[in-house]
Amino acid sequence: MSVAEKLKPETAETILSVNNIEVIYNHVILVLKGVSLTVPKGGIVALLGANGAGKTTTLRAVSNLLRGERGEVTKGDIIFNGEEIQDLTPNELVQRGCIQVMEGRHCFGHLSIEDNLMTGAYTRKDGAAAIKDHLDLVYQYFPRLKERRKSQAGYTSGGEQQMCAIGRALMSKPSMILLDEPSMGLAPQLVEEIFEIVRDLNQKENVSFLLAEQNTNIALKYATYGYILESGRVVMDGDAKELRENEDVKEFYLGTGGDGRKSFKDVKHYRRRKRWLA
């Protein structure tokens, strides 16, 4: 069996499946118009698309953080480890091993890095010793956090905050992390570093990832499978390698059309309009 086949959602064991969900904000604004996707156990799945395509909404629908934004899932279902999860609270979901790292980091600015990490263990009931061991493990993945453990998170750099947010999520001992825009506002080198850690965690700690990214290039480099969202619909999905080589993806998201790199403004008008929805 080839790698691609092994990672096909249908054949591999799935940890998360989202089936045809519709999300409405404020009772009137339809944001997701039937999104379906699956994440295989131990996979890294990328959710790609432009601003406002519905990536964050999809992640929030899964993590049940929509309610705080006055959104709700009105159709479809979401299954995590064989269990329907739409009606769980975020607290119950974190206890079951699925946690979101929000876009823009959202560290607790006035708490020290270590306190931030410890809040991640809030839902755990396996005792202080186990949590302490886990903290050491997180520090192994993010040695930089260890150096800055006493600093207030608000005063650390963007990269450190992103590490802190991922480390905090790790402290809950998740089997799946929903990672929203980890590259946002970070230097390319740091983005690379963060994605390396994500891959490490995926391989060594067996954490599955669903990551929303605008940086299509890097996301497809590290992911095994990708979905492309546009205006609240999945317009394309496939093996990461396939997507990377797809002409349309190249043209619209990687900026490297048939004849090498070119500016979006040179793309023929009708192609621009067409996208995949026309």
Binding site: S63, L65, G68, P90, N91, L93, V94, Q95, I99, Q100, V101, M102, H106, C107, F108, G109, H110, L111, D115, N116, T119, G120, Y122, T123, R168, A169, S172
Partner: peptide, 15 residues
Amino acid sequence: RAVADDHQAALSVGI
């Protein structure tokens, strides 16, 4: 203290 800082993030870690 976490909730006081950022209640969205607090929700996301399961508080």
